[in-house]
C-alpha cells in the first residue's frame, strides 16, 4: 500500500531533487534516532510527502545538517527535520508494524513476523504518544479484514476505510485547515487503495486472493481504472489547493499531479514491452461527456 505518493523525477530540477532528498534523509535519520537502526528499513517515501505537507502548512522551525549514510557512502547527505519529521517517523514505524502483521497473516512470510516482533516495542511507545492515529489504523485495518472475510465487492467501502486512515494521519492537530486536510487524506487514501488493488489485480487473481477491484468488476461488469483514479486525485487536489501553502509547493504539486502515477506508468510500460498492452479507455476518449 506504499510507494505511491512519491515525486516524479522527470519534472524536477537538481535543486528540487536536493530539497526532496533532504526531507527523505531527515525522516530516515529521525526514524533511526527514535526507534533504532532496524526501524529504518521500514522507511517509506509516502511519509516524506506527509512531512512536506505539514511543514508547508505549519512552517515550523527547521533543523538541518549533514550526515554520512552507509547507503550513500560517497558523499555526505544533507538532511532537514522539524516536529513533523518526528511525527512522520512515528507514523512510518506504526504503519510498517501493521503492514508486517498483515503480510504475515496473508503470506506467512516469517521475515515479516520477525520484523513485526522487533517493532512491537516501538509501536507500543508510539501508540501511547499518538493514540488517535494508532486506534484509527487498527480500526480501519479491522474494517478491511472484515470486508475481505465477506469477499466484498464494495470498492467504495474498502477504499473509504483506507481513506479514513489517511485522514487521521494528516490531522494530528485540530488546526483551522483540518477539514481540508481531512478531505485531502480521505481522497488520497482512497486513491492509494484503489491504485494498489488495480496493480495487484492480476497477481491476486492467480493466487486466489481477495481483490476488491476484481470483485467490483465481476459484480458491476466493468471498471474504468484510470477514470476512477483521476476522480479520486481530483478530489484530493481540490482540497489540497485550498490550503495556503508556499514552502515546497512545487514538490507537493509534482507528487500529487504526476508522482502518484509513477507506478501506473511503470506497469503500462512493462505490459507494452511484454506485448500485452490493453490501453485503458479514459472518459475523454469515450466521448461520453467529461471533456
Amino acid at each position: 500500500m506504499f510507494g505511491y505518493v512519491v515525486a516524479n523525477a522527470a519534472q524536477l530540477s537538481p535543486e528540487q531533487v536536493a530539497r526532496y532528498r533532504q526531507v527523505y534523509c531527515g525522516l530516515c535519520r529521525t526514524i533511526g534516532e527514535r526507534h533504532g537502526a532496524l526501524a529504518r528499513l521500514s522507511l517509506t517515501y509516502d511519509l516524506s510527502f506527509l512531512v512536506l505537507l505539514l511543514d508547508a502548512l505549519d512552517e515550523p522551525e527547521l533543523k538541518t545538517g549533514t550526515l554520512r549514510c552507509p547507503a550513500h557512502p560517497l558523499r555526505r547527505q544533507s538532511w532537514r527535520s522539524s516536529r513533523w519529521t518526528d511525527y512522520a517517523a512515528d507514523m512510518n514505524v506504526a504503519l510498517a508494524y501493521h503492514k508486517c502483521l498483515d503480510d504475515w497473516r496473508d503470506e506467512q512470510k516469517l521475515s515479516c513476523l520477525t520484523y513485526a516482533r522487533r517493532l512491537r516495542g516501538a509501536y507500543r511507545t508510539i501508540r501511547q504518544r499518538w493514540p488517535e492515529q494508532c486506534r484509527g489504523m487498527e480500526e480501519q485495518l479491522e474494517r478491511l479484514s472484515a470486508l475481505e472475510r465477506a469477499n466484498s465487492a464494495d470498492l467504495d467501502a474498502a477504499s473509504a476505510a483506507f481513506g479514513a486512515l489517511m485522514a487521521r494521519l494528516l490531522t494530528a492537530e485540530e488546526s483551522f485547515f483540518a477539514p481540508q486536510l481531512r478531505a485531502l487524506g480521505e481522497a488520497l487514501g482512497r486513491f492509494i487503495y484503489v491504485m494498489d488493488a488495480v496493480l495487484d489485480e492480476e497477481a491476486d487473481r492467480k493466487r486466489g486472493r481477495w481483490n476488491p477491484v476484481a470483485r467490483f468488476r465481476e459484480r458491476q461488469g466493468d471498471f474504468r481504472a484510470r477514470e476512477t483514479l483521476e476522480l479520486l486525485m481530483g478530489e484530493a487536489t481540490l482540497a489540497f489547493e485550498q490550503l495556503p501553502l508556499e514552502q515546497d509547493l512545487d514538490l507537493l504539486r509534482n507528487i500529487l499531479y504526476s508522482g502518484v502515477w509513477c507506478q501506473w506508468v511503470e506497469r503500462q510500460r512493462r505490459q507494452s514491452r511484454k506485448g500485452k498492452n490493453k490501453p485503458e479507455r479514459s472518459g475523454t476518449e469515450q466521448g461520453e461527456g467529461g471533456e
Binding site: 512519491v6 515525486a7 516524479n8 523525477a9 519534472q11 524536477l12 504526476s258 509513477c262 506508468v265 511503470e266
Partner: peptide
Amino acid sequence: TMGWCASMFVL
C-alpha cells in the same frame, strides 16, 4: 511522468 524505477534512480 517517469516510470517508478527510473524516477527513484534519478532521485
